[in-house]
Design a binder for these strands. Sequence first.
DNA 1: AGCATAAATAATAA
DNA 2: TTATTATTTATGCT
Lengths: 189, 189
Amino acid sequence: QLINHVPSSLEGLMPNTVGNSTESTTVDGINLDEIKEFAKQFKIRRLSLGLTQTQVGQALSATEGPAYSQSAICRFEKLDITPKSAQKIKPVLERWMLEAEERYKNGMQNLTEFIGSEPSKKRKRRTSFTPQALELLNKFFERNTHPSGAEMTELADKLNYDREVIRVWFCNKRQALKNTIKKLKQEGP
Amino acid sequence: QLINHVPSSLEGLMPNTVGNSTESTTVDGINLDEIKEFAKQFKIRRLSLGLTQTQVGQALSATEGPAYSQSAICRFEKLDITPKSAQKIKPVLERWMLEAEERYKNGMQNLTEFIGSEPSKKRKRRTSFTPQALELLNKFFERNTHPSGAEMTELADKLNYDREVIRVWFCNKRQALKNTIKKLKQEGP
DNA sequence: AGCATAAATAATAA
DNA sequence: TTATTATTTATGCT
């Protein structure tokens, strides 16, 4: 039912495999090849403008016409959607991208204006945790890897860090734990 | 000293601002504009192939010639490096990218082969010094930041580390001292 | 199709 | 450079 069967993130950018039969290029009167090509180019054009999926999604919400979330952009680029959906989104993205590129030519100012409310959001400085903070966080993590919202707020207050910073710390910590486990499994039989 | 002053991740992809004077396009006989343009295009070419900075770094380690880490690729793309460094890395990346694109044309198989081969050149494991060793090294460093060859050999033997490891430790330590002094001077008058 | 968040990737402190 | 934090992308659930 979905256009692309293989969920690899690279697939969309890779040359078409030889085995593609020409039978399936149209479904319900929709030209799939054309959509595939557009999706591939859309991603490259987006990256050329230095935009993230999130930014495109937010910009679409800010302008007139249908709004789409980051997830929707992601799914469109990967064509992890039905032909009918793709057909519906394509003209919206096409129109939007043309205007974005137009503004880009006239300088970054124009583009960032178009993109939206918080365009040049500067990356947050990397936090460095004190050994004392890390000790407490690690101790908590050993007992509970998924603290509740209230618990995170409490930790943030007690340690005097931003709550968001604490949240991200737990995200990353869980990932690190996962990786460790994966490695151990690879070594074992 | 670094090529790009603004650390925003988008900066490298944005059109040059109007205010750029033409005076600063060359430094030490190095054409900065050319490097800036190359870095910008390199990122787009990398993304068009669907490659990550990590993959490029690993692939470079696997092939002949100089090896660079993901961080090095990141810094090159952002031009968060000196003109001299950029000048040195540029031809390596250029040559590598041309081959990657060539293989891409011949199908994904060829590209993944090029990317994925196991690194032949294994990097030396990072040494971890015992607290006791560090104490002795630091004590020595306080008196003399440039030990003679004989002194280094003696230290290496006494602490049971590779002589090269000791030599590098002093290099890094001097570097760290330099940075500390620079920072203190900036803070003061 | 959006929300929440896991996974992947980029950026940066050490 | 490596280790770790921050951001972006992808996906399970509804």
